[in-house]
């Protein structure tokens, strides 16, 4: 669950002196939106994004295949002028949860990953995080999602997991979510099996309610206001 395990290590970088057009070509070629800017010692000095470049160039040069003469007029523009200095960074020892919260808070699509000396070690993007969480949820493997309604008291999850274990079923992930009824929790184990009939029956026998997952979802939606009397 650490950034170092999920980041992209082979980072495409540019220098302050790199021309803006070259940076744009690099982004197009590698289909990326963020280029960390580093110095000779691989110390991070900034980041330039496709949005920075779109802001600097006329629309024709961004969207259309430009004439080379037209492009030449902008060849003197340097990354340095348009990059973000001292961008927000994250360290390889941070967790994926840190990265998620940071991306939400800073409204950024990617973070350069730097060590304590400020050296660039990688980059972690929304795309990397998606991959990591697909892995965490276990949904890359075949399985079935159950939705179990449990009372909010100590030991409920253990009872559920015990049944799953006794049935020799592997668990891809377990999510626990709020339910609209107070003192209830919806538990979603993702079971790596097709064989769910017996485990469902045993959970019912223990007094758990097996919900249609859509029912849980619909109950989360705001209820329409009652009609005026």
């Amino acid at each position: 669950m650490f950034v170092s395990r999920s980041m992209t290590e082979k980072v495409i970088t540019v220098r302050k002196e790199t021309s803006l057009l070259e940076a744009q070509d690099l982004m197009n070629k590698h289909q990326i939106r963020h280029l960390p800017v580093v110095d000779d010692d691989n110390i991070l000095v900034g980041i330039i994004t496709d949005r920075d470049i779109r802001g600097a160039l006329p629309y024709r040069l961004v969207k259309e295949q430009p004439e080379s003469e037209e492009r030449a007029k902008y060849a003197h523009l340097k990354v340095e002028t348009y990059m973000t200095d001292k961008p927000a960074t994250i360290s390889p020892e941070h967790t994926l949860q840190d990265a998620l919260l940071l991306i939400q808070e800073k409204r950024m699509g990617a973070f350069p990953v730097v060590d304590r000396d400020g050296r660039l070690k990688g980059i972690i993007s929304v795309r990397d995080l998606l991959r990591a969480f697909i892995n965490v949820l276990g949904i890359g493997e075949p399985g079935t999602l159950l939705c179990i309604l449990a009372e909010e008291k100590v030991g409920q999850l253990k009872r559920i997991v015990d049944v799953i274990t006794e049935e020799k079923i592997s668990c891809g992930s377990v999510l626990v979510a709020r339910y609209f009824e107070k003192d209830k929790r919806a538990v979603f184990p993702y079971l790596l099996t097709n064989n769910v009939m017996r485990v469902k029956q045993r959970l019912r026998d223990l007094g758990f309610e097996i919900l249609d997952p859509m029912q849980w979802y619909l109950d989360q939606l705001p209820k329409p206001a009652p009609p005026e009397a």
Partner: peptide
Amino acid sequence: PSFAYPGT
């Protein structure tokens, strides 16, 4: 597939 086997 978000709910049922095999997830594809």
